[in-house]
């Protein structure tokens, strides 16, 4: 989507707002360690939207939550994530709290479990505001009302006094968005924000997010499994498979000419890619589980183009001349199309 030319305030105006390099996350349980995110790298430009797509178990949610310190203590995070010149990995809890909900906000899939049921919506909004901005309750309440109006909730003043259960699913997600944006963050992490919603409500929320992005100029890291949503709201897309980034590209390039066999398989398995009456294309097999990730190419077992070399050694993530990134040793010789 088109975005305004006014990226969030200071920082380096040319570089990315968020630059993640070799981010890895491991969980240890019962003396066994599973590396669920393995050397993930991506960058989010100011005011732009990067989609992270992947299936369940790909590590897309874990990588995004690792950025803001929302993983359990059992997680070990290594690598680097620079946000506007600040290193996020290794921050103290206190530093994380300062940045979270302020410069970086998060909205989740399930709006009911992310709002506190025993506090009014106004209470939660003003708390989020005053925690970071200080000021009087009255000012905070005025800001909360402004936010509810901004996210399209009718009669905002009256609804501030209501509890989350009094809102419908779509309206709750609007409240979540108001809560996330009340401190005008420069980066919004949206983790499957519309997956639990009906499709007509989803289109309302996607439209709202795009409008707010135009207005407030924030960048969005949009975690989703839905390629239709990616095509509709993202500027760039990063594809994750089994804990690794396998491809990153602008959405136009990605949807026209994927460079990784997994991306091609995903695009081709969409019902849109074949005429009605033909069989849907499929990717055979299933995603491996973290304890059984191969050390070589993790997709090789399901890949129609796999050769011996694919299973011989780890495959590096390669930066191409045109700015695209791909993890496949055969990408130069293979010509892929989104449609079979």
């Amino acid at each position: 989507m088109s975005t305004p030319s006014t990226p969030g305030a200071a920082g380096a105006p040319t570089g990315p707002l968020l630059e993640v390099t070799d981010l890895s996350v491991s969980f240890t349980a019962h003396k066994q360690t599973a590396k669920v995110v393995d050397q993930v790298s991506f960058a989010v430009q100011p005011g732009k939207t990067l989609g992270i797509v992947g299936e369940s178990g790909s590590g897309k949610t874990v990588s995004s939550l690792a950025l803001v310190g929302l993983l359990p203590r059992t997680a070990t995070i290594t690598g680097s994530a620079r946000f506007a010149g600040q290193e996020l990995v290794g921050m103290t809890t206190r530093q994380q709290r300062e940045i979270r909900g302020n410069d970086i906000s998060v909205i989740f899939q399930e709006p009911m479990t992310s709002l506190d049921p025993v506090f009014t919506v106004g209470n939660q909004l003003t708390e989020a505001y005053r925690n970071h901005q200080g000021g009087s309750k009255k000012d905070a309440m005025a800001r909360a009302e402004e936010m509810l109006r901004l996210v399209g909730i009718p009669e905002p003043r009256k609804r501030l006094a209501e509890y989350p259960h009094a809102f419908s699913g779509g309206m709750r997600q609007r409240v979540m968005i108001a809560l996330a944006l009340i401190n005008s963050p420069r980066l919004l992490i949206a983790d499957e924000p519309t997956t639990a919603l009906d499709v007509t409500i989803q289109s309302q929320i996607l439209e709202l997010l795009q409008e707010l992005q135009q207005e407030m100029g924030m960048a969005i890291l949009f975690v989703t499994h839905d390629l239709g949503v990616v095509a509709s709201v993202c500027d760039e897309v990063s594809v994750m498979y089994a804990g690794q980034v396998v491809e990153q590209a602008s959405i136009d390039e990605f949807f026209a000419h994927p460079r990784h066999p997994y991306s091609e398989g995903l695009l081709r398995s969409m019902p849109h890619s074949v005429p009605k009456g033909e069989r849907l294309r499929m990717i055979p097999g299933t995603v491996p589980i973290p304890s059984r990730f191969p050390t070589s190419c993790r997709f090789a077992g399901r890949c129609p183009y796999a050769q011996e070399a694919c299973s011989a050694a780890p495959i590096p993530l390669e930066q191409l001349d045109d700015g695209r990134v791909v993890r496949c040793i055969r990408h130069r010789e293979l010509v892929m199309e989104a449609r079979p």
Binding site: S203, Q204, G228, A231, S232, L267, M270, H272, S273
Partner: peptide
């Protein structure tokens, strides 16, 4: 019409150009 047009399709070109009906309110 509204239900079908609300579902995003995996094609950025189509998504940029097509007219989408955004239904007001909740069911």
């Amino acid at each position: 019409e509204a239900l079908i047009s609300a579902a995003p399709v995996p094609d950025p070109e189509v998504e940029r150009t097509r007219r989408r009906i955004v239904l007001e309110g909740d069911p």
